[in-house]
Design a protein around this nucleic acid. Structure first.
Lengths: 356, 356
DNA sequence: CTATTCTTGTTAATCGATTAAGTGACGGAC
DNA sequence: GTCCGTCACTTAATCGATTAACAAGAATAG
């Protein structure tokens, strides 16, 4: 490492005191009545030597780090990486940097991460919490550290949070399928007590009940939902309940593995079975047939989260206010059939079929 | 904020000096010959009050932050979010935290981010650099700060880097298509001078040349590659060159928009046109027909990057060594035709078609 | 001409750790 | 009895900023 130039080095070089440099650098020149001469000398000099303030020293003194700690379930999940991207971008414009980390829904890892964030004095937290970290989050709030939960909340805690109307999303999904003539609609979800999962399940149940339909639910362990085994479980479920003519998947990974299952069984969508996914995936419209999905407003979630956090950071009183924002979801209906024209084309060209 | 307990508070409470506490906490108890009595007293006390060291103070004193700064093009891109996830996970086990940020391939933003990282004294950098930040990166190296580039490198700089064999990937893609009877293979890439893009293009050119084929290349501006306009450009390109019977897409976003274009033209894969993508996407195998792709070894890239960085961090001498690791890519061949059986099924069931 | 008020800075404490150097008490050697 | 070496800690400087309190000299007031 080269010797980095500190505020004292500047002071020495200009025959001034460190305090003066600090005042100029922090826009307190007026308040502290620093002369124009000196201001210019300081500004010119720091430009010349390329002075970079040491935020660590600043943080130690002021107690503010200008860092936000963000905990998501999995940064590689398109839903979370999309939100992260939005949050990072907005926070950046407000001089905040973000620490990202993936909890993997693991309580112990989450605890460790919160502890690591605290040690680094992050100013605020954005968390998609796994159940089991209630104590740690309560401790943060007891210390007046701003915390915003998103995607889900912790029922026993009175926190600020940004969620979506999962209940309505699931309800609409059932309604949509019913209106299109599907009779036996199953719901495949995770073995999870998380609020967003419960709300989806409840929306499904209520919609089925309102139509005097018998619900049929499969619950898959979270750990398996990202892997091939989820596809196998779904396939077994479909085989065991062959009257099913539609499935709602409660997460995007489940939907993707569900599609694998459906494909492996030689079933086609929407002729043999209809599908609605949760968490719209940009790629869903490329699947052939493309998939209808309950889309969450990624951008709005990011905006709302940052908005709430900034307000809590700006003002102790704001931070004491607890607000829960519920954003609407949108059912993105995709005409997932093969258009006639296309079908015929496929048919007529079969003779010249090649592999890519 | 509640009063947090500092090392001095502990010292006062136990009638010891701050130094003693520090020694016990840092495993220097033996070296400094601290008695068993005192050790126990200290350890018990910190457990009791839940002492959390202030890493900011520690960083200020030691000059080490245990933070790695990571700059990717776009954290929402599955390729980058996958690598980020891997790197975060490995780094975590070595007590390093990661600062993520998206450059959006914007030079000015990248400069600002590097500056922000420097101000926070990050210990090392992992960067997928846009061209134009050579000076900043050289400055880091001049100051002996460890830097590892990945995905691409900067030709004028002698840095450590982890890349993949893009040249071979493109070459194999052409070879594969040729062997399957495709004659007119186009290459759609970005308007970009980045090394990974150039290597892919060169691999394509060489493979075409080796087979006495005339290359046909389209270059799309990076800014458009994520949007619908890319699909329109690709569609126009295909229409203008209707003898094309195969396309290699040089990035995953291009491939996805290319598929939209192909679909919008009413063409089918692989009957009318064959497609190979770069950057395998987990979802490519769900597209119907599924897409053959040049897959990058995400996990290995993450591992190799962290390995190199940790070694550079551990030792000044290691850091002076510059090494470039080139990992192999894998052509993931997917049988992307509609199996006969399925085609017939689609055909026979058209009569009962529904929408989902 | 002295007293008071501005101007324009400076001094020094502080944030919470780390660590080189120092110190008092005790034991053993000669 | 003096000298020296351990033992078991303590003192104090330091990292690079911020900021309340203070101060020297010029300007103005009375």
């Amino acid at each position: 490492m080269k010797k980095k130039v500190s505020i004292h080095d500047i002071a020495k070089a200009l025959h001034l005191s460190a305090a003066t440099i600090s005042f100029v650098l922090n826009g307190k020149a007026d308040e502290k009545k620093i002369s124009g001469d000196v201001r210019k000398k300081v500004l010119d000099y720091i430009k010349k030597v390329g002075y970079q303030p040491n935020m660590i020293a600043k943080s130690l003194r002021t107690g503010k780090s200008n860092i936000i700690g963000m905990l998501v379930e999995d940064i590689a999940d398109p839903f979370f990486s999309g939100i992260s991207r939005g949050i990072e971008s907005i926070a950046y414009h407000h001089q905040y940097k973000i620490f990202f980390a993936s909890t993997e829904n693991d309580v112990e890892k989450t605890r460790t991460l919160i502890r690591a964030f605290r040690e680094r004095q992050v100013d605020g937290y954005i968390i998609a919490p796994p159940p089991g970290v209630e104590e740690e989050i309560q401790a943060l709030m007891d210390d007046n550290v701003p915390v915003i939960l998103f995607d889900r909340y912790l029922p026993v805690l009175n926190t600020s949070s940004v969620i979506v109307d999962n209940y309505a999303g699931a309800y609409q999904a059932v309604k949509h399928l019913k209106e299109n003539g599907y009779a036996h609609i199953a719901f495949i979800t995770l073995q999870s007590e998380q609020t967003q999962m419960m709300a989806r399940l409840q929306g499904y149940h209520k919609a089925m009940e309102d139509r005097d339909c018998t619900p049929l639910v499969a619950r898959i362990p979270y750990e398996l939902s990202h892997h091939d085994s989820a596809a196998q479980l779904v396939a077994a479920f479909i085989k065991a309940n062959d009257h099913i003519d539609a499935i709602i998947f409660a997460t995007n990974y489940l939907a993707i593995n569900g599609l694998r299952a459906i494909s492996s069984l030689g079933l086609t969508i929407p002729e043999n079975i209809a599908v609605v996914g949760f968490d719209d995936n940009t790629h869903f419209n490329l699947f052939s047939p493309s998939i209808t999905a309950v889309a969450q407003p990624i951008e709005e979630i990011a905006q709302e989260v940052v908005l709430q956090l900034l307000s809590a950071l700006s003002d102790e009183k704001e931070n004491k206010k607890r607000r829960t924002v519920t954003l609407p979801v949108k059912l993105v209906i995709r005409n997932s059939s093969f258009p006639k024209a296309k079908l015929e084309q496929i048919h007529t060209e079969t003779s010249v079929m090649k592999n890519s």
